[in-house]
Amino acid sequence: MATNTNDAVGMPQLDFSTFPNQIFWLVVTLVVIYLILSRVALPRIGSILAERSGTITADIDAAETYKRQASEAEAAYNKALEDARAQAHKIVEEMRADIQADLDVAIQKADAEIAARTAESERRIAEIRDSANEAVEEVARDTAREILALFGVKAEDKAIDDSVSTRVKGGAA
């Protein structure tokens, strides 16, 4: 076995004479790393991450707000469209009602006119019929008088008139 300190005798890990040295420097190292991490590094990185997540959250919130505004605007637009449509519908309905009313009035007027004319015509027809009946009666009376005269029957005019008009009325009836 060589006696050089660079050469291992057995396992260097089990060389207990170096343990105090290693443990001392390990403790120093751990304390230094702990101080560096807990005093400088970790708060700094933690604040960076918190800031970033804060920024991201704020951005997401802003995006959310914009999205909400956009959907609100869309809702307003839709509502306006709906209103306009309803308005148009109403106007159309009103117009239709107006026209319908006008039309009804006109039809009524026309009906009345027609009724009036019909009544007039019927009246005239009745007049004509009456005058025709009178004429028939007249003719019948005259004829009866003539016939009686021919047969030489003396009859009172009044009796002849009565009997003729009774017959004519009865025939007409």
């Binding site: 300190t5 660079n6 050469d7 291992a8 260097p12 004479s17």
Partner: peptide, 15 residues
């Protein structure tokens, strides 16, 4: 196992 030897950096024999 030589690589695991603990040795003083600035001379000396004892650790």
């Amino acid at each position: 196992m030589d690589q695991f030897v603990v040795r003083p950096l600035f001379g000396g024999e004892t650790v």
